[in-house]
Design a protein around this nucleic acid. Structure first.
Lengths: 375, 375
DNA sequence: GATTCCTATCTAATCGTTTCAAACCAGGAA
DNA sequence: TTCCTGGTTTGAAACGATTAGATAGGAATC
């Protein structure tokens, strides 16, 4: 445990002089300096020069000066006065989860292009933590919310909507609430996954999912059940507790596989469940898809690099991000628009790879290692 | 392309009444209601009741009332008055990169525990974009900065430091600047990687890195060079352009491998280079480590699930996050402390897995599939 | 010459806090 | 009665912007 640490030293010998902290320049300083009023400066600054008929002369004088001194307006003051912060509060389940960090990244880019900043926070799917975060965001007067909400925050969200604060939900929604929402076709995702496995000769298909009431998990279960039901086989569903470490998850999947030796294919309902599951299958020394086929939910940059590569239901993260921001900006910019509620459901794509076919044809090296099949 | 979209409908028939927008309750409203002054309310609210000798009676009256009406202070106004926002600006290269999103997650948690919020933004390693982001953050009066800076922003950072705004750099630093910094021992990381490969029989070891002047990349190159030099072999270094798509990266690694058929091991200097590299190796149908051994930089949740599992230099992300926040909070809370500069270098760990050994001993099933060896 | 209209600019209130300095109120001392 | 003192409470000025409404000065209209 070599810690090469604390290369410690003092800096800047004379810097604690009478705390000279050169005060940041304000709009009034500029006004005084140029013998104008703050109002005029403000007009020029906010592009109202035309509208307010500020003379060309003054306009130039002001813009030259602010450039010269590098004036930076104080957004805090501006926000206090206008009531708008141009900040969006974003709540995801876990910022380090690739699905959420991918979406966050997309949203960040578009939002910054529109001069909005974002507070990101992870809810960990914890109702109380989420409530606290919403409270904090309210104190900070964020203009709008984007969230993948846990259950139990209906009241807080209603309160926001009653105060005309735009809220966009994504990934899941709250059935009792009429909100703007962007989700994907989870039902179709797992339905397709089952059908695909069946077409490739697998019949004892299990679903490993979370013990969660959230809509996206529910829809995935429904899609699975419907497809299984249509085929006349028996559904085999295992629900794992929500907050599970990677190791504990792997452990539980191992147990599940041991106790269900007839299962020849597993669909994992989230990306981290798939990772735990792959770990379990590897620990047990089973072959994919020889002993057991696998389909994941949420594609992952790495799934095509696994051996075998992993079939997955891919979510259109880029589009989700776009749609979410689009809805939010709409609601923010347009009083009338903000009264409408819309739910958008985006399609998923089943990315077929080696982990899910074929069961019967053995040892055939298929020339196309990674095919794509669209829903 | 089935888009089940725009389930559009109006909501809330009577909600555009005389814009009744119930005004948020302020400290003055409370004061009026309780026949007290705003000052008193403020004292109670900020825990100064003791110090200011507010009577027990008044104290209770105030706190009961604010609880009853669910008063939420306006942080914007507070910030304007105090000059403190309790917001941290965080600039990473790419929020969707697992390394950065992992660190961000860690920092988020600790910061929120200390009642700080965070603006996250991705620099994409772009100097101009970063300058713009710093400007935006300044306008928003963030209290402190955490960044993994690109080259070329020295002036902006100096300006911040001159204004006594705390700045903590991580992952890399700017040599011309005397800043608070948290980095890892990159030199040792690649040095160990080379030594490890050599001990396992590989001699023609290449480094695939980025064409970047950043300190972390430089140190990784130095560590590699030093180790190679000590062994008397020839260094083989390939520098790829910084902004490269996964596909383009794979393409370039493929070319590299084709043109260097003597190379029997490759060290990838970042996690995404490793991913591109693995793709390339797979595309070429080469065996790991039979044809070519592989070591990555930055461990990845998935590396132990690859077949073979991938050896990597692991960064202590949790500790990095802790150290960064610790330094920042120190600087924020402590005027005197904020004048000190310290650089902390944390150790790395080489996680040895199947992708890097053994070269000579063939076909031996090693009983421990995933060993860990500590630096 | 008085009235109106434009143009170009300014005064002052406001947003919701914090905080300095002053005020108020008892009770005790002079 | 006046003064002092210490414990409570308050008035009002910040903080740095926006913005409705005022204003001043000239040109145009009657």
């Amino acid at each position: 445990m070599c810690i090469i640490k604390s290369i410690n030293y003092k800096f800047d010998p004379g810097s604690w002089l009478p705390a000279k902290m050169k005060k940041r320049i304000s709009i009034h300083d500029i006004a005084r300096e140029l013998n104008l009023s703050a109002t005029t400066i403000s007009f020029v600054l906010n592009g109202k020069a035309e509208e307010k008929k500020i003379s060309e002369d003054v306009r130039r004088k002001v813009s030259d000066y602010i450039k010269k001194v590098g004036y930076q307006p104080n957004m805090i003051a501006k926000s206090l006065r206008t009531g708008k912060t141009r900040v969006i509060g974003m709540l995801v389940e876990d910022l380090s989860d690739p699905f959420f960090s991918g979406i966050s990244r997309g949203i960040e880019t578009i939002a910054y292009d529109h001069k909005y900043k974002i507070f990101f926070a992870s809810t960990e799917n914890d109702t109380e933590k989420t409530k606290a975060l919403i409270k904090v965001f309210r104190e900070r007067q964020v203009d709008g919310y984007i969230m993948a909400p846990p259950c139990g925050v209906e009241d807080e969200i209603s309160a926001l909507m009653e105060d005309n604060v735009p809220v966009i939900l994504f990934d899941r929604y709250l059935p009792s609430l009429n909100t703007n929402t962007v989700i994907i076709d989870n039902f179709s995702g797992s339905y397709q996954a089952v059908k695909h496995l069946q077409e490739n000769g697998f019949s004892n298909i299990a679903l490993i999912t979370l013990n969660s009431e959230q809509t996206q998990m529910h829809a995935r279960l429904q899609g699975y059940s419907k497809a299984i039901e249509e085929s006349g086989f028996q559904p085999v569903v295992q629900k794992l507790p929500c907050k599970l470490s990677h190791q504990a998850g792997a452990e539980m999947v191992r147990e599940f596989i041991k106790q269900h030796d007839k299962v020849d294919a597993i669909i994992f309902a989230t990306n981290y469940l798939a990772i735990s599951g792959l770990q379990a299958i590897r620990d047990l020394g089973l072959a994919i898809p020889g002993n057991i086929a696998v389909v994941g939910f949420d594609d992952n940059t790495h799934f095509n690099l696994f051996t075998p590569s992993i079939t997955a239901v891919a979510q259109p993260t880029e589009e989700i991000a776009q749609e979410v921001v689009h809805q939010l900006l709409n609601a923010l910019s347009n009083e009338r628009e903000s009264k409408k509620r819309r739910m958008v459901m985006l399609p998923v794509k089943l990315i077929v790879r080696d982990s899910s076919f074929p069961k019967v044809i053995k040892k055939i090296v298929h020339s196309q290692p990674s095919t794509m099949k669209t829903s």
